[in-house]
Design a protein around this nucleic acid. Structure first.
Length: 503
DNA sequence: CGGATTTGACCGGCGC
DNA sequence: GCGCCGGTCAAATCCG
């Protein structure tokens, strides 16, 4: 836009410079010619002397003109350089803007790629709505015009009657067949956070379309639909924790197919990244639901207060409603509560409000359940191996322990920070998702863990990231402290998104 | 008055 | 087949 007039100016300057460059050849004679007629009436004698004076005068003028031209040339050169610099800056900014845009889209695209990779095998059935969940994701790859074109399709296919999971428990007769017969439901991302307001302020626009009293929880569950775009398939469920009503459980489902406000990017990219990680694991570990005889166990990582504990499908759910809702949905939980998953809580009963620690081990979900705990400022790093099964722990040699590496990297006061407020979700989620290298490292780690592969790869990936972070001045993780300390800047809970979004 | 919310009805899946 | 339950719809209602 603003660069447009610049070349024009440059051209003008350029042409002016060229004119001046050729000026001496024409200008001087021209000036002489112009002045000549006035000299004609003079006598020869006087004329000769006059000519000399005038020649001298002309030379003086010529010199002055040449000097001026030099100055103009120099000024022209300066302007040219200035213009070049401006153009370079403009291009640089343009590139940065483009990079930022692509980075923001990468997370979502990763999910889309994952989905199409893991679910796309059932392409034949997809056309017949037997794999509805992939539809919204796939359409995100399309241009807005395309998604607009498929608006009717979206409305019909995004949330069709679920008829696809009858054979979910059928024995695996090859992954392809299973995928075709039992396309998994859309990945869900569950966010647990302490929040006094009805909903989390995630930056998106939501419209409430229903409310139900779910069994086992006196608190009603509210159903919201994203109104960012008419065809946006994203929905969320909001429910208070049955154990601690101060904890708000928000479950996101689907991927936005429209531009998001900056305030919503953090959560959206986080859910996408989380779903991506989950899917990367699900693609390898859920091919045979219920047939894996040996629990892979859980693995956790404490990244400067961000407890990430991933769980295989052998991880158990405690809340019946969540179990039900997660029955056919791969679910990943981002725990932003301040309840640390103590070593005992993951396997035995505890007072923790987290519902993920108390389920009897007789509830094997059909999909892996992954949890990222951002609020657990567990100062006992050694105990953070808590979630790991002994087998998995062996795969994480002490010297490559993620926690230790991260602890060294981000050593912090042992005083636990205050529980994060809702708006800290954005900070926390941004912290883990804004860095692509972290995403890839985390995805690799989780893939290795969930897939039952060599945990060393996971450690390697994470270690490489930590090293990279060290070199980059703790990029990514540094945002973690802001997760906690930024809460002070907004003492009044900003939780109700509607207050912010609609006005 | 238009958009958002509420709330009872309805539907489909699932377990018995 | 029946009942329970989660999820959605849509008319009624509310609200700015």
């Amino acid at each position: 836009m603003e660069a447009q007039p610049l070349p024009t100016t440059a051209d003008a300057v350029q042409s002016a410079g060229e004119d001046e460059e050729h000026a001496p050849k024409h200008k001087v004679p021209l000036m002489a010619e112009l002045e000549k007629p006035s000299m004609e009436p003079l006598s020869l004698a006087s004329a000769s002397s006059t000519w000399k004076e005038e020649d001298h005068e002309h030379e003086q003028r010529l010199k002055m003109a040449k000097g001026e031209m030099r100055e103009v040339k120099e000024e022209n050169q300066r302007l040219k350089r200035c213009l070049d610099q401006m153009m370079r800056d403009y291009e640089s900014l343009k590139r940065q803007f483009h990079d930022m845009s692509t980075i923001n889209n990468e997370a979502a695209e990763e999910v889309e790629d994952m989905v199409s990779l893991t679910l796309g095998r059932s392409s034949s059935d997809q056309n017949k709505n037997t794999c509805p969940e992939t539809k919204p994701d796939l359409q995100n790859i399309q241009s807005p015009a395309d998604s607009e074109q498929g608006k009717e399709e979206d409305a019909g296919q995004t949330w069709p009657p679920g008829k696809v999971l009858k054979g979910l428990a059928a024995p695996a007769a090859g992954e392809d067949e299973v995928s075709q017969q039992n396309p998994p439901k859309k990945t869900r991302v569950c966010v647990r956070a302490r929040c006094d307001t009805p909903t989390l302020n995630d930056g998106c626009q939501w419209r409430k379309y229903g409310q139900k009293i779910a069994k086992g929880n006196p608190c009603p569950r509210a159903y919201y639909r994203c109104t960012g775009a008419p065809s946006c398939p994203v929905r969320k469920q909001v429910q208070r924790s049955v154990d601690d009503i101060s904890i708000l459980i928000t479950t996101y489902e689907g991927t936005h197919n429209h531009p998001l406000p900056v305030s919503a990017m953090a959560m959206a990219s986080t859910t996408s990244a989380a779903a991506s990680m989950l899917l990367s694991g699900a693609s390898t570990s859920t091919s045979r639901p219920g047939l894996n005889p040996s629990p892979i166990g859980t693995a956790s990582a404490n990244l400067h207060g961000m407890n990430m504990y991933t769980n295989s499908k052998q991880f158990y759910l405690s809340n019946s409603s969540m179990l039900s809702s997660s029955l056919n949905h791969p679910t990943i939980t981002l725990d932003l509560t301040s309840n640390p998953p103590s070593a005992s809580s993951s396997s035995s009963s505890s007072s923790s409000s987290s519902p993920f620690h108390k389920i009897p081990s007789t509830y094997p979900p059909k999909y892996p359940f992954t949890s990222l705990d951002f609020g657990s400022w567990n100062t006992n790093i050694n105990k953070n191996v808590l979630g790991m099964s002994s087998d998995l722990a062996k795969q994480f040699p002490p010297h490559t322990n993620i926690y230790q590496a991260c602890l060294q990297q981000f050593a912090k006061p042992s005083t636990p920070p205050p529980p994060p407020l809702p708006d800290t979700i954005a900070a926390a989620t941004k912290a883990i998702t804004s860095d692509p290298s972290f995403q890839s490292a985390l995805a690799a780690a989780l893939s290795s863990i969930i897939g039952g592969g060599n945990g060393g790869e996971a450690v390697q990936a994470m270690s490489s990231y930590v090293q990279a972070a060290q070199g980059q001045g703790s990029m990514g993780f540094q945002a973690a402290p802001s997760l906690t300390y930024s809460t002070s800047k907004s003492p009044s809970s900003p939780g109700d998104s509607r207050d912010d979004d609609t006005k």
